[in-house]
Design a protein around this nucleic acid. Structure first.
Length: 508
RNA sequence: GGUCCGUUCAUCUAAGGGUUAGGAUUCAAGAUUUUCAUUCUUGCCAUAGGGGUUCGAAUCCCCUACGGACUGCCA
C-alpha cells in the first residue's frame, strides 16, 4: 500500500441539529485520524438548497468543539483543500458531470420530477416499484432514448435536465469494507442515480466522490445507511479515472432506540426523557426545543466515552477512557457489525464515573453558578466540604442541590412520612434538651459533638435512634443525608440550634 | 416487493474451533451506614431455530426465522 498521509472527513448536511449517531461518526473518524497520525476534516454537504436550516452549521461546529473533536481542516478551521462547503464548490462539479456524459458514463435526463412522481404512483398502484434504471431508461425521456437531433434541440432550447449515471449492466462490484469484510453488489439491481440536478447543483453522490478525491481522503468512515450506495461511488471513481487512489470504505453500525424497533430518532429522546442531541436545539421554524447532553449536565468526556463504547471496544474489560486513551487504542477492526441499542441508564453511569473522579474543588466551581441562580451567595471554600460529603450520592452536578440544599438554607418544610414515623409526643422535650446541650459545646467539630451527644444520651438513658432521627429531621427536613454530626459541624453551632428550635416550634 | 447488512444475558459487549461462555449497566438479596444514598459481597439472566463440516462449533458453510438500512433531481 501507499505511504499516503491518512485523511478522513466528517461530512454532515446542515439540515438540522447533529444527532448523537452523527457525533459518533465524527468521533470514530477523529479517532482513526489521530491514531494514524492523520488529518480530520469537516466538510459541509449543503448541496440541497431546499433543506437549508439556519443555524445548523453553527450548531454542528459548536457540538464538535464541545466534544473536543476539533477538525484540522474545515470551514473556519483553515486548510489547503478548501473551500469546505460544497455550495462554495459549485463550479467544480459541473465540469466532472460533463466529463462523465462525454465519456459515456452518464446521460442527460429530461424527465421532470412530476413525470417521475406519476410513474412511481402508477407503479405503486399496480403493486410495482418504479426505478429509473437499465430496465426502464430506454422508455424514458433522456439522451439515450432520444435521437441525437432531438437531444440537441432540447439542450439548445434551455430545457432543464438532470445528469444520471449510466449504471453498467450485469457487473459484480465487490469491496472489502474495513468493518464488514467483503460486500458484493450486482449492477443489474442498481438504478441510474441522478448525479447533477437541474438546479445546477450536484447530488451527494457526485459531490462526495469529487471532493473526497480532490481533498485526498484516504478512508471513508460513515453510517450504514450509505452501504447501498457504495457500489455507485466505487463505479464513479472508476468512471472518473481515480480508481488507483480512491479511498477505502467502512460502514458503521446504527444506533438503535432503547426499546422497540428501528434506529434512534429525535422523537425517542423526547418520549423517553433522554437527549439525542449533543447540545440543546431550538427549531427555527416551530420553536420546538430538543434537549442536549450538555444542558442535561453531562460532561463532554463522559459523552464521548459512552459514544465510543457504543459499537466499539478495545477487547479488554476497561470501560472508562480518556480521549487520549481512545486515540491510542482505536481501530476499525474492533468496531462491531451489528446495531447497538442505546441505554440511557448506562449513559448516566458513565457520567457518574466521571463525576466521582473529579476533585471537590472542580465540582464546587461547577456548582457555584447553580447556587447563585438560587440567590445563594457563599464562598467556594464553604461549598467544597459540602461536596465532599454529598458527591457519592450524585450522578450529575445539578443533583448536588437536591442532595445538599440543607447546607445552604434551612428546610422550608418537613417530610411528612418522616414526621409521622419519627416525631413522637416526647420528641419536642428531647430536642430542646439537645439544643441546650449543643449550646454548651465550645469545640464545634463532628467528633466532639458526637462525644458530648453520646455522653448526654447515656446519662439520660435515651434511645439513640429515637433522638437522632428527629434531630436529622430538624436539620435537613427529611431522613436523608450524610453523617449527622458532620452536618452539625458544617452548619455551625448557631444554625444547628436555631433549626432545632424552629422545628420544635413548627412541629409542636 | 427488490438489494444489501446484521443476530451471545433485559441492555452494551468479550471469547478470531477446545473456557464452568467473561465483564459492565439494570434488577434482586445480604452486609455496612443508629437515616437515606454510597460502598462491598452474592445472586438472576445469553450463543434465534434447523441442518451440515469437524474428534470437537458461539466461532466455518447452508437454510429458515427475526431485525435493520436502502430503494428521491435528500443527505
Amino acid at each position: 500500500m501507499s505511504e499516503k498521509r491518512i485523511r478522513v472527513r466528517f461530512a454532515p448536511s446542515p439540515t438540522g441539529p447533529l444527532h448523537m449517531g452523527g457525533v459518533r461518526t465524527a468521533l470514530f473518524n477523529y479517532l482513526f485520524a489521530k491514531r494514524n497520525g492523520g488529518d480530520f476534516l469537516l466538510r459541509i454537504e449543503d448541496t440541497d438548497q431546499t433543506r437549508y436550516v439556519p443555524g445548523a452549521e453553527e450548531y454542528i461546529i459548536e457540538s464538535l468543539k464541545w466534544c473536543g473533536l476539533i477538525p484540522d481542516e474545515g470551514p473556519g478551521f483553515g486548510g489547503e483543500y478548501g473551500p469546505y462547503r460544497q455550495s462554495e464548490r459549485k463550479e467544480i462539479y459541473a465540469r466532472y458531470a460533463q466529463q462523465l456524459v462525454e465519456s459515456g458514463w452518464a446521460y442527460y435526463s429530461f424527465d421532470t420530477p412530476e413525470d417521475l412522481d406519476r410513474l412511481r404512483a402508477e407503479a405503486e398502484a399496480s403493486g410495482q416499484v418504479f426505478s429509473y434504471s437499465q430496465h426502464t431508461r430506454m422508455k424514458l425521456c433522456n439522451s439515450l432514448a432520444l435521437n441525437e437531433h432531438e437531444v440537441k434541440i432540447r439542450l439548445e432550447s434551455g430545457e432543464p435536465y438532470a445528469i444520471r449515471f449510466k449504471m453498467p449492466e450485469q457487473l459484480d462490484v465487490t469491496e472489502e469494507d474495513l468493518i464488514r469484510g467483503s460486500v458484493t453488489f450486482n449492477t443489474r439491481e442498481l438504478d441510474d442515480k441522478v448525479l447533477f440536478k437541474s438546479d445546477g447543483m450536484p447530488t451527494y453522490h457526485l459531490a462526495n466522490v469529487v471532493d473526497d478525491h480532490l481533498m485526498e481522503i484516504t478512508h471513508v468512515i460513515r453510517g450504514e445507511e450509505w452501504l447501498p450506495s457504495m457500489p455507485l461511488h466505487i463505479l464513479l471513481y472508476r468512471a472518473l479515472g481515480w480508481e488507483e487512489t480512491r479511498p477505502r470504505f467502512s460502514h458503521l453500525p446504527l444506533i438503535l432506540k432503547p426499546q422497540g424497533k428501528g434506529k434512534l430518532s429525535k422523537r425517542d429522546g423526547d418520549k423517553l426523557g433522554f437527549p439525542v442531541f449533543p447540545l440543546q436545539w431550538q427549531d427555527p421554524e416551530t420553536g420546538e426545543i430538543s434537549k442536549g447532553y450538555r444542558e442535561d449536565g453531562y460532561f463532554p468526556e463522559a459523552f464521548i466515552n459512552l459514544l465510543a463504547l457504543l459499537g466499539w471496544n478495545p477487547g479488554t474489560e476497561q470501560e472508562i477512557f480518556s480521549i487520549e486513551e481512545l486515540t491510542g487504542l482505536f481501530s476499525l477492526e474492533r468496531v462491531v457489525k451489528s446495531g447497538s441499542r442505546f441505554d440511557p441508564e448506562k449513559a448516566r453511569w458513565f457520567n457518574r464515573s466521571y463525576l466521582q473522579e473529579k476533585s471537590p474543588e472542580a465540582l464546587a466551581q461547577l456548582f457555584e453558578p447553580m447556587l447563585k441562580q438560587k440567590n445563594i451567595v457563599t464562598d467556594i471554600s464553604r461549598i467544597i466540604p459540602v461536596i465532599e460529603e454529598i458527591k457519592d450520592r450524585c450522578d450529575f452536578v445539578k443533583e448536588f442541590w437536591d442532595h445538599g440544599y440543607y447546607f445552604f438554607e434551612a428546610p422550608k418544610n418537613y417530610d411528612e412520612k418522616t414526621v409521622s414515623k419519627r416525631w413522637k409526643p416526647e420528641t419536642p422535650v428531647e430536642m430542646e434538651a439537645i439544643a441546650q446541650l449543643f449550646d454548651t459545646i465550645d469545640n464545634w467539630e463532628a467528633t466532639f459533638i458526637k462525644d458530648s451527644f453520646s455522653v448526654f444520651m447515656n446519662e439520660k438513658g435515651w434511645n439513640f435512634g429515637a433522638v437522632m432521627n428527629p434531630l436529622r429531621l430538624c436539620l435537613v427536613g427529611g431522613n436523608m443525608g450524610p453523617d449527622l454530626f458532620r452536618i452539625c459541624e458544617l452548619l455551625g453551632k448557631d444554625e444547628t440550634v436555631n433549626r432545632i428550635r424552629k422545628a420544635v416550634k413548627v412541629l409542636g
